[in-house]
Design a protein around this nucleic acid. Structure first.
Length: 444
RNA sequence: GACCCCAUCGUCUAACCUGGUUAGGACAAGAGCUUUUCAAGCUCUCGAUACGGGUUCAAAUCCCGUUGGGGUCGCCA
């Protein structure tokens, strides 16, 4: 009795799944499909199942599986159940046998074919409404291959039916699989689930996101320095909107209001510009501690971090660059001068160095060297009064000094930069600029 | 080619379901303010209902067609 009640409850609860194949890394498109499934399950207090479609034993790899699972978690999702198709071959064979016995399938050339008759098929799509197929290209379909493994359409139907997946949310590229699958549901005596076909993510050139487009896997985006919340946020925005002109929102907020029926029908072009903007918003909103952690992790991985660097120093660098960081990789790139002295002066900054100001910079260095409390405010006071005494404008010295300290003409505020680098290194770098002028424009 | 899906600024979208908005927002672009540069921030500008027919007092919104774009046509998933 108890079991019966449980079984009834089990079929009532909303159940969705994400079914990745471990033959590659988790793709941007797959991640969004996963996201929408997860959101829908959480919104309706349903169950989110992960089903690993590893029937292609030759192409499936543990490395890919691990990465897919890790990416899903990294983006902020979890799952209630996980199944592996490679462990369920027995089930597929039983179901195929059932069809053979009923005369709905037959063996040929070592494979099992499912045979069906033409009929009009209607899909009641949660996103698109009614989709009608008036004809089908074939009249039979392989369900068990000659190597005994099930085909995608067959194992998919069996599993969705037996796992009681009652809402199938997947990419639009599966629409044309749906009629065959519905025929299989019916032949096997299973209840046909509801379908929702998501629009595809398109590349800016039009067409599918392909190899021509730079990064396609979640893992690559992580390595490029995108934050998981930013990617999840951006992906949700592709085809769905929380309304009220809201664009920056978390998974937690979305899972309260997400509705699959609100998803758009139109394919969405991936825009790195918008992703970058969202990422920069999240970076600016991140705590310094978190950024220091990520920064450190990255620099250690590349064996870049000098041993004298401590957490406090990292934090000051983060403060310096946070506001002008789009991706974490920018932070890594732009802050190199904070760790090493061996940078060259940028080609396009050399024009600023054309005018020889060696004596003025010497004066500045002297003023700096006699300072006791080398903090931002004092540095600014000393800098401004020195410049005034020299009869110069602030900008006359700011630009050359920035190049001396960072190698570039653009960067964070000069006085903050001077403070972070510290007196010793600042003086050393000013020396270098002076000798550059004395040697007639040759960098040491 | 056959079958199927889709159509609002360059891009993502709101308004579409339940016809009545100066068709709104964001990214990008351009201009300005601020300023030691860059960035950020603030202000402003540019910019769309693919086309043609209906239905209706009224159409981005409903219907039909055209055009355009996309997807699928594997013993891959």
């Amino acid at each position: 009795m108890q079991a019966k009640v449980l079984a009834a409850r089990r079929s009532l609860v909303l159940r969705v799944r994400f079914a990745p194949s471990p033959t590659g890394y988790l793709h941007i498109g797959g991640a969004r499909t996963c996201l929408f499934n997860w959101l829908y399950a959480r919104k309706h207090k349903g169950e989110f199942v992960l089903r690993i479609e590893d029937t292609d034993v030759a192409r499936s790899k543990k490395e890919y599986l691990d990465e897919i699972l890790e990416s899903i978690k990294w983006l902020g999702m979890d799952w209630d159940n996980i199944y592996y198709q490679s462990q369920r071959f027995e089930i597929y064979h039983q179901q195929a046998q059932k069809l053979i016995e009923q005369g709905k399938a037959y063996k040929k050339e070592g494979a099992v074919f499912f045979k069906y008759e033409f009929q009009t098929i209607e899909i009641d799509d949660l996103i698109r409404g009614k989709i009608t197929f008036n004809e089908l290209p074939k009249s039979e379909e392989v369900i068990i291959k000659s190597d005994n493994s099930p085909t995608y359409n067959f194992s998919c139907v069996i599993d969705d039916a037996l796992m009681k997946v009652n809402n199938i949310i997947r990419g639009e590229d599966h629409i044309s699989n749906t009629p065959k699958q519905i025929l299989m549901y019916k032949a096997l005596g299973f209840q046909v689930p509801k379908f929702a076909h998501l629009p595809l993510i398109l590349s800016p050139e039009g067409g599918r996101l392909s190899k021509r487009f730079g990064a396609t896997s979640i893992r690559e985006y992580k390595e490029l320095g995108y934050l998981p919340e930013a990617i999840a946020n951006y992906l949700m925005l592709l085809g769905w909107s929380p309304g009220e002109d809201k664009e920056i929102f978390t998974l937690d907020e979305a899972k309260e209001i997400f509705e699959i029926t609100d998803v758009n029908k139109t394919g969405a072009v991936l825009s790195l510009e918008k992703l970058n903007w969202i990422n920069s918003e999240y970076i600016r909103a991140s705590s310094d501690e978190r950024l220091v952690g990520l920064f450190e992790e990255h620099l250690k991985k590349d064996d870049f971090l000098p041993s004298w660097v401590d957490k406090e120093y990292m934090k000051r660098i983060v403060e310096l660059f946070k506001e002008r960081t789009v991706k974490l990789s920018d932070l890594f790139e732009k802050s190199r001068f904070c760790f090493y002295d061996d940078f060259a002066y940028d080609q396009d900054s050399k024009s600023i160095l054309e005018k020889d100001l060696s004596s003025q910079v010497k004066t500045l260095a002297t003023s700096f060297s006699s300072m006791e409390d080398f903090n931002k405010e004092n540095i600014e006071d000393v800098f401004r009064s020195t410049v005034k005494d020299l009869g110069l404008k602030v900008r006359d010295l700011v630009h050359p000094v920035r190049i001396a300290l960072t190698g570039r003409k653009n960067g964070p505020g000069l006085f903050e930069t001077i403070e972070v680098l510290g007196k010793e290194r600042v003086l050393k770098r000013l020396e270098r600029l002076i000798s550059y002028w004395e040697k007639g424009g040759v960098d040491a």
